[in-house]
Simulated assay, not measured.
Amino acid sequence: MSHEVVPNIELTPIVEVVAAVILQPDGQFLLTQRPKGKLYSGYWEFPGGKVETGESLLYALERELWEELGIHIRYAHPWISRVFTYAHATVRLHFFRVVDWEGNLTPREMQAVCWQIPNQIEVSPILPANGPILQALLLPPLYAITHASEIGIELALQQIEHALQNGLRLLQIREKQMERDKLREFVERVLAFARPYQAKVLINSDIELARETRADGVHFTSSQLMSISRQTDLGYGLGSASCHNAEELYTAEQLGLDFVVLGPVQSTLSHPGLPPLGWRKFASLIRGYSLPVYALGGMSSRDLVIAQEMGAQGIATMRGIA
């Protein structure tokens, strides 16, 4: 969990900038090195540049990638936006994930380029504004949530093991009806399954249990989220939270959580009293948001593409583990 200080930007002109996270199917992404003669020459960054007057963000991205790399975008979707203050300017970086393009990728400014793997960055220095994006690239598209109290512990463990074998890498243990001793045993068994796959396991609500079992982090309920002090030393790894509205999203952002889930997008059995947001409102709420967001509520693998088109990191699902 990061604790980045959000600058006071009310009186500071903001330069709008687009940046492309160009992805290959195997997860590699492109970094380019700023050429001599530019500010921060020698630093590595995601390709992109300043949005000119009258340009849409996507048009600016298309222009920058053509000018810098000689490629045309076929398919890109909005992702994360972050404000960062350098010595010379305050910039708002609008990151897009570019998953399909055409053309012969050629560094037209004689800049160095390299393909990197999220957990094995081999170049430095990297522009500091890009640090949180590198962390977000480590997050997978699926955030699974357990429901062992509903289907039984042994079946749940079988489903989790099968899902891990098939690529699951992020899991939340959410068992509100389970007795604590039984829950601790369940957590330890899940962690034993997850460790060989380097999958991350978060505990819903219970910081102490996460510490005791050495889980990878804590997922806060929305009510917990709104009661946490910004000065609180949470003292654990990953931090995430459930959000349902703009106020909760803002609070998670101010606390510097690693990611959030937002929903319910569609009707869901786990939150029967909450009206669904729908995709349009979901997209509106996360437009320009600085944290990775998982869409929650009635999600299945069929919804992953539309969730990412709306700007989400991916989907969170309780009944899609198997």
Rank of each mutant, 00 (worst) to 15 (best):
residue 17 V to Y: 03
residue 147 H to Q: 07
residue 77 H to S: 12
residue 101 W to A: 02
residue 146 T to S: 10
residue 192 A to K: 11
residue 82 R to Y: 10
residue 54 G to L: 15
residue 12 T to P: 05
residue 8 N to S: 05
residue 37 G to I: 00
residue 60 A to C: 11
residue 221 T to M: 13
residue 99 V to H: 08
residue 195 R to Q: 07
residue 316 A to S: 13
residue 92 R to L: 06
residue 238 L to R: 08
residue 62 E to Y: 11
residue 202 L to N: 05
residue 5 V to N: 00
residue 182 K to G: 00
residue 10 E to K: 05
residue 84 F to M: 02
residue 180 R to W: 10
residue 287 R to K: 14
residue 86 Y to F: 12
residue 46 F to A: 03
residue 187 V to E: 03
residue 147 H to S: 05
residue 228 I to H: 05
residue 28 Q to V: 15
residue 85 T to C: 14
residue 106 T to G: 00
residue 287 R to V: 08
residue 183 L to I: 08
residue 8 N to D: 10
residue 299 M to K: 07
residue 157 L to M: 03
residue 288 G to F: 03
residue 153 I to P: 00
residue 13 P to F: 02
residue 276 P to C: 13
residue 107 P to E: 04
residue 28 Q to L: 15
residue 200 K to Y: 08
residue 97 R to T: 08
residue 211 R to Y: 15
residue 153 I to Y: 01
residue 303 D to I: 06
residue 116 Q to K: 10
residue 184 R to W: 15
residue 210 A to C: 14
residue 272 P to L: 10
residue 81 S to W: 11
residue 215 A to M: 10
residue 291 L to G: 13
residue 160 I to N: 04
residue 184 R to S: 14
residue 9 I to G: 01
residue 83 V to S: 06
residue 133 I to D: 00
residue 177 Q to N: 07
residue 153 I to R: 03
residue 311 G to L: 10
residue 254 Q to F: 03
residue 289 Y to T: 09
residue 187 V to P: 00
residue 22 I to Q: 07
residue 37 G to T: 00
residue 306 I to W: 12
residue 177 Q to W: 04
